[in-house]
Design a protein around this nucleic acid. Structure first.
Length: 524
DNA sequence: TTGTGTTTTATTGCCTCC
DNA sequence: GGAGGCAATAAAACACAA
């Protein structure tokens, strides 16, 4: 009797061990899932089964994972909103528009959260592919108008179609990178932050926040634009405290606007940080179809040669910004946390990189390009290396499959033609992203090595979550006009070190606690 | 080493839509 | 009624400080 019980318990034990209650997804699986989630938050059955097959998981697991992933996104977004709610209420009319955006990133339809689009609808209707409805196009067009009007301070990411941009910027990373001044105050100091958000979120502000930041930036940049040369980057912070508008400032800009469209001719303000120059350059050229194409591609895909864009001054002033910019396109390959360490990173002049993670266990890949990506994706404990290599191949094939599908649609779309940079094949994007990804990551790693612990604490795959939120917000907002604005919340990876470095006493007195994050986005 | 907090995974129940 | 999704919950796995 007892014997049988023992035997049964033994069997149970074995069976328990065999079917562990909880099995952690392998890093490779997570990478694949995250990558896929980036593009498809609501995968179809087909996708799920295929994914399940590729990853050797059950469809149930896949479904569950996606479900929880969406919940996670939602929760994070809610946290973000909660942490920044007061700021939202203080943003006036423009903010109202922003607040109209739905916070929920999970696409729950039963609560009527999404007044614009159901996420499923978005996906099934191929918003990615820009098959907008008339209303969508109207909205997008309006948005485009905003983007164009703000292009004087806009940056290279000012493509009006956020979804396209999302496709272009799988992680939305380059947006941050293209916005160097968002990380620095005009005097080179670090902008104040929203400590609460930085603390609590553990990842870059995204989605609603980003949109909201951009929304505010519209007004700020409009003022900047109008001020033109009179705008002082090192002056009082816009939206917080304005200098008296110089006499004639508006006339001059009106004339400029009349002559040059909305481009506020203001080349390279003396004190203007790279953004101004960079943005203006990129935006001003947006209407030159050819150069737009080139620059757009260059900026987006190559991360922009900011050295040439901004000249040596900029480089001298903000060397680490250059690093950050070079590091644009933190592609989807960088989905995994903990693989950041600066200690042994080196990027030589050819862009070739050697990276050995000084952390626990991540040995980074050594080459850029796909190899870099793969090694990146496979930068896990050695026992996962082989597995990762296989999985990354699987990711490639999966993403290619769906990306190609999307690409076909994208290429069909006439709208895309006006946005050349957006029509780039995603695989190409990935390729470029991968080329840049490693250097960027390494640069970031070098830059943010000190905060590695903090990041680890949150298990934040830097790009993913942010992009996911952003993408969702953008989708639901019907391609928010301000998605294209370059104003971003400074990535947490940028924020945290500053948070550490800057004590409260160092904070500019004019920043209230709530203003910090807001202003940091507004300043640039 | 241990306790504690956080994250991730799995399960269940309920709701909505078809 | 079934499918799919969300929300709540439990528990394992993990990270980290003492």
């Amino acid at each position: 009797m007892e014997e049988t019980t023992e035997m049964q318990s033994e069997e149970n034990k074995l069976s328990m061990e065999k079917n562990k209650k909880r099995r952690l997804k392998t890093p490779a699986q997570l990478t694949a899932l995250e990558s896929f989630y980036n593009d498809h938050k609501y995968p179809t059955e087909e996708m799920k089964s295929e994914l399940a097959e590729e990853l050797e998981l059950t469809e149930k697991q896949i479904s569950g994972w996606f479900c929880h992933r969406r919940l996670k996104d939602k929760k994070l977004l809610n946290d973000e909103v909660g942490a920044n709610g007061r700021q939202d209420r203080s943003s006036g009319v423009i903010q109202d528009r922003g607040s109209g955006l739905v916070q929920d990133s999970c696409g729950s339809t039963k609560h009527g959260d999404y007044r614009y689009l159901d996420p499923k609808e978005v996906e099934s209707h191929g918003l990615y592919n820009h098959e907008f409805s008339a209303a969508d196009m109207t909205y997008a067009h309006r948005n485009h108008h905003y983007a164009e009007n703000d292009s004087a301070t806009d940056n290279t990411s000012s493509e009006s179609c956020s979804s396209l941009q999302d496709r272009l910027l799988p992680q939305g990373q380059d947006q941050y990178d293209m916005e160097p001044s968002s990380h620095l105050m005009p005097n080179g100091s670090l902008p104040p932050l929203n400590p609460k958000g930085a603390n609590n979120m553990g990842y870059k502000p995204s989605g609603y926040l980003k949109v909201k930041g951009e929304i505010e930036h519209v007004s700020i940049s409009a003022v900047k634009k109008q001020l033109g040369n009179h705008f002082q980057e090192d002056g009082p912070l816009l939206s917080v405290e304005f200098d008296t508008i110089p006499p004639g400032a508006f006339e001059g800009q009106i004339a400029d606007l009349a002559n040059e469209g909305y481009y506020a001719a203001n080349p390279a303000l003396p004190n203007s940080p790279e953004v101004s120059a960079g943005k203006k350059q990129s935006s001003s050229s947006r209407y030159d179809s050819y150069f737009t194409k080139l620059r757009s591609q260059d900026s987006h895909m190559v991360g922009g040669d900011f050295g040439s864009l901004h000249g040596p001054d900029f480089q001298d002033k903000k060397p680490h910004k250059q690093i950050n910019q070079r590091a644009s396109f933190h592609s989807f390959t960088n989905h995994l946390p903990h693989n950041n360490s600066s200690l042994d990173l080196y990027v030589d002049s050819t862009g070739e990189a050697s990276a050995y993670n000084g952390g626990k266990n991540r040995r980074m890949g050594t080459k850029h390009g796909f190899e870099g990506m793969r090694s990146d994706s496979a930068s896990y404990p050695s026992d996962h290396y082989e597995e990762n290599a296989v999985a990354v191949k699987q990711i490639d094939s999966l993403l290619d499959l769906y990306n190609n599908i999307n690409l076909k649609n994208v290429q069909k779309n006439e709208y895309v033609k006006s946005k050349p940079s957006n029509s780039i094949h995603k695989s190409q994007i990935y390729l470029n992203a991968e080329e840049k990804g490693l250097t960027k990551r390494m640069a970031n790693e070098e830059k943010f090595n000190d905060e590695r612990k903090l990041r680890k604490q949150y298990h934040v795959p830097d790009g993913i979550r942010v992009l996911s939120n952003e993408k969702m917000v953008a989708k639901r907002a019907k391609v928010d006009p301000f998605e294209s604005y370059d104003v971003k919340q400074t990535p947490l990876s940028d924020l945290e070190p500053r948070k550490v470095q800057r004590s409260a006493a160092e904070m500019p007195s004019r920043f209230s606690e709530d203003e910090t994050a807001e202003t940091s986005s507004s300043v640039d």
